[in-house]
Amino acid sequence: MKRIVFLDQSVPVIFHAVLVASIYLLFVGHNQPGGGFVGGLVAGAAISLRYLAGGLDEVRSVSRFRPWTILGSGIAVSVGTAIAPMLRGDPVLSSMGTEFDVALLGHIYASTTLLFDIGVYMVVVGLVFMVFEAFGEQDTPPVDADAHGEVTPS
């Protein structure tokens, strides 16, 4: 794969910014547009940028967990949150929330829905990892020796 200087240099900067944005979306999801699915997709976009810059190895370096572990734990967290209220005799998927004040952050409303969303977020991110794992392997580089490892200024 041809490497592009512009991408190589900008991705390390953008990557973290996009991840922060995805986590922001995850947290505001309760009452505003956003949520685990959208947040996960944005994080997936960040991971895709890493792939564009450095290929599969770069994607693997993002997380030391295996993709299916992330995906499986995500489903477990979400379904667990869904089942948990049933232990108290409430209907499935019921949520609880509490409000409290924290220094610096101010007034906070925390809900169990967030846990569900975190699970969904993990599922989406795990899936993105799995897709790259399955389809992201580069073919052998072209026979033309000059093209190998060439850096194209853009």
């Binding site: 299916w68 379904v79 667990g80």
Partner: peptide, 11 residues
């Protein structure tokens, strides 16, 4: 669904 999640992890 719960079993699916754990059987992924228990691979």
């Amino acid at each position: 669904l719960f079993a699916a999640a754990f059987s992924v992890v228990l691979g």
